[in-house]
């Protein structure tokens, strides 16, 4: 059961990573990237590393997304 959960999360992670590369809309890519961070956070927590999970949730999903959003708002939204 635990193994199935792990495998599902890892597959979702790979799907998210591919989606980030494929998405042309940079805003959408940032949202998918924060989803990636949240899945990664779940994986860390499930592997018994709450410290890393906390960092991943705060930095990966929170601060980095905010910085990316500001960067997009200062440049352009669409990938050329």
């Amino acid at each position: 059961m635990s193994r199935a959960f792990d495998i599902t999360l890892l597959l979702l992670l790979i799907a998210c990573a591919l989606a980030v590369i494929q998405t042309k809309d940079l805003l959408g890519a940032v949202v998918i990237f924060s989803t990636y961070s949240l899945i990664m956070c779940l994986i860390w927590q499930h592997r018994g590393a709450p410290d890393v999970a906390m960092t991943e949730a705060a930095v990966g999903a929170g601060v980095t997304s905010a910085l990316f959003l500001v960067a997009i708002s200062k440049t352009v939204r669409k990938e050329k």
Partner: peptide, 16 residues
């Protein structure tokens, strides 16, 4: 669980 890096990130998110 936690420490300097983690709390720094949480504080930064709060500031943002």
């Amino acid at each position: 669980p936690g420490g300097g890096f983690q709390s720094g990130a949480i504080l930064a998110a709060l500031v943002i």
